[in-house]
Write a protein that binds this DNA or RNA. Structure first.
Length: 616
DNA sequence: GATTTCACGTA
DNA sequence: CGTACGTGAAATCC
């Protein structure tokens, strides 16, 4: 490898990980081995970027790149050790010691635990370490207390921390490239996505505060001026429902049990009060419709109301939340503070700022097109050449388009209800390669066999949490677990007990076999879905990374990533050019990702003022 | 106080 | 037509 070849050299940037202390940062690579204050970091990095354009390497962008992003230093190529580890190993856990051990081929089971704080632990850890300042222990594992106050960083330690990052990344690269050449490209785009996530959090989503306030007011009432007023507004809202049930005005609408009783009293007997259970009773009694409308308003009031506006929309009228480049399951991006689940009614409030517009683009029929690509089904690939993929599929099956669409979706996601029967058989005949790909994923899920997406991401099947899935018609969550604490919860939370649940069910005898079968099937559906959803996420991130790189000079900012949709905030004058580059970026990233042009990907891209302007 | 359940928004 | 995620309120556990 030539030392002068741009983009081929690694340079590690690490920021002191120790909470509370700040030894600054270290930069190691291309002949540099330097510790410096955080304030001096951006200038050095910008200079090296201009001269060498190396592959910036860090334990995680969220920590190490944050000061660079804050200083608006823009970097082209990076390697995110945490993301590369998630790709290689699956799941969410990606601490430096774990990533290091995996990159070195060491058993994760042997990971040394950080000292609990007592003297014996401290002594034991020390005994394993070659030298007091060494980051790597004699047994090859990373020192577990690195990054904790038990091992405060100084210049020497920080340099060793950076050197370890370089070695870890090199190990990851070797392993990924050896396992699957495509995984290397995926690691690059996942790393770029992780850096983009830090930029997304910095830039925020432009909001028209006045419109947001108006929409909130129209839905859930005026901004409360006092505790008493707030109660009054709430009571007003509740009264719209309770007026339909005289004598039961004391019902707490926020209590599902009480709501169930209330409904029973008017003859609506339901197992729960979820929306899709109540919907059929809308005409049975006026209270049902009123309740469902109340729920919408209550959602806005509690989750997306004035408090939300105050907490998450800055004085610069930008909505901000934390982003992650991949969840712990299939690898989608996640976002907090409503960025990913803003109710459609509030979308008119997402408005480009003065002198700017949005370029919005979304991938059309992304999942079936991805299926064509990842399965290598030539016939199905041929169908992707149509703007509407379902049209040629319908022709091939000899059915109407809506039937063809339902059949394809049923095949990809696995239906539990309804009937796409005959059309599904037609799919098996017309596209056996694609269908076999889905069947293999399902089977691997059931058997807990190793499974990877097209881009090389390991799909975690050993820790998938599924509650019994035998019940409700649609939308019922099949995964439990706590849900506070971001993507570190549930699935990603580490060694989730696979055992105790089955023990609990053993007492139920014959029931336990049924539960076990239901869990197997749920895992199969998860796996079948994950190879599609995960691959789509990989393509999407490759696209987003390319857009980021190719539109930056136009003053464009990616402000929202929504699974198959990009929202780019750009000066008016650059809008059309940005739009064209979005489409070019899709062609380029799809060609690189699939390795051919067999499968066509399409995007709808428009220039708009408000997010809500686009949805056709 | 922490965890679980219910509910619902987005793709 | 399934999977995934984030959020809040109330219930429940400890």
């Amino acid at each position: 490898m030539s030392l002068t070849a741009r983009g081929n050299e690694r340079v590690a940037v690490v920021v002191d990980p120790t909470p509370g202390s700040a030894a600054g940062a270290a930069v190691v690579g291309v002949g540099l081995a330097q510790c410096l204050a955080l304030d001096d970091l951006p200038r050095l990095v910008a200079q090296v970027e201009a001269e060498q354009a190396p592959r910036w390497t860090w334990w995680s962008a969220a920590h190490d790149a944050r000061p660079l992003v804050a200083a608006r230093v823009s970097l082209a190529r990076c390697w995110d050790i945490a993301e590369a580890h998630r790709l290689a190993a699956g799941g969410w856990q990606a601490s430096p010691p774990l990533a290091w051990a995996t990159a070195r081929g060491l058993e994760p089971e042997g990971l040394p635990q950080p000292a609990a704080g007592d003297l014996f632990d401290f002594g034991a850890a020390d005994a394993e370490t070659a030298a007091p300042d060494a980051v790597v222990r004699a047994d090859g594992y990373l020192r577990p207390e690195a990054g904790s106050p038990a091992w405060p960083m100084d210049s020497a330690r920080l340099l060793a921390w950076a050197q370890a990052a370089l070695e870890c990344a090199a190990g990851q690269e070797d392993r990924l490239a050896g396992a699957d050449p495509r995984a290397l490209a995926t690691a690059h785009s996942e790393s770029a996505a992780a850096l983009l996530c830090v930029e997304l959090e910095r830039d925020g989503l432009p909001v028209d505060r006045g419109t947001a306030e108006r929409l909130i007011r129209e839905s859930s009432g005026p901004r409360p001026t006092s505790e008493g007023h707030a109660r009054e507004v709430r009571a007003q809202r509740d009264a719209q429902v309770l007026r339909h049930v005289p004598g039961r005005e004391s019902t707490d609408l926020r209590n599902p049990l009480q709501v169930r009783e209330l409904l029973a009293s008017v003859g609506v007997v339901v197992p729960n009060t979820r929306k899709w259970v109540l919907a059929p009773f809308r005409d049975t009694h006026a209270v049902v419709d009123a309740l469902l409308e109340w729920r919408k308003a209550e959602r806005i009031a509690t989750t997306y109301g004035y408090g939300w506006l105050a907490a998450h929309v800055g004085s610069d009228d930008r909505l901000r939340g934390a982003w992650t480049a991949c969840d712990g399951a299939a690898g989608r991006m996640t976002a907090q503070n409503g960025l990913h689940n803003l109710p459609a009614t509030l979308r008119p409030a997402i408005t480009a700022h003065a002198g700017h517009v949005f370029v919005r683009a979304d991938l059309g029929q992304i999942e079936p097109r991805v299926l064509a690509a990842v399965s290598g089904d030539r016939a199905f690939a041929a169908a992707t050449r149509a703007d509407d993929l379902y049209a040629p599929v319908a022709t091939a099956l000899g059915v109407e388009r809506p039937i063809a669409k339902v059949a394809v979706l049923a095949a990809m996601y696995g239906q539990r209800s309804g009937a796409a029967g005959e059309a599904l058989k037609g799919l098996e005949r017309a596209y056996p390669t694609a269908m076999a790909y889905l069947d293999r994923a399902y089977a691997a899920g059931v058997r807990r066999a190793p499974l990877r997406t097209f881009g090389g991401r390991a799909i975690p099947l050993d820790q998938v949490l599924t509650q019994d899935s035998g019940g409700s018609p649609t939308g019922e969550p099949t995964r439990g677990g706590p849900h506070h604490g971001g993507p570190t919860s549930a699935l990603h939370g580490g060694p989730i007990s696979a055992g105790h649940e089955s023990e609990r069910h053993d007492r139920e005898g014959a029931d336990s076999a049924a539960r076990s079968a239901a869990r197997d099937a749920a895992r199969g559906r998860f796996a079948r879905n994950a190879v599609i959803q995960g691959a789509a996420a990989e393509l999407f991130k490759a696209w987003a990374a390319t857009v980021r790189a190719t539109t930056r000079e136009l003053g464009a900012q990616i402000v929202l990533c929504l699974h198959d949709e990009l929202l780019v905030h750009v000066p008016e004058d650059s809008a059309e050019q940005t739009r064209e580059r979005l489409l070019t970026a899709l062609d380029d990233s799809a060609r690189r990702w699939t390795g051919s042009t067999e499968v066509r990907f399409v995007a709808d891209a428009s220039i708009i003022q408000r997010w809500s302007d686009a949805k056709a």
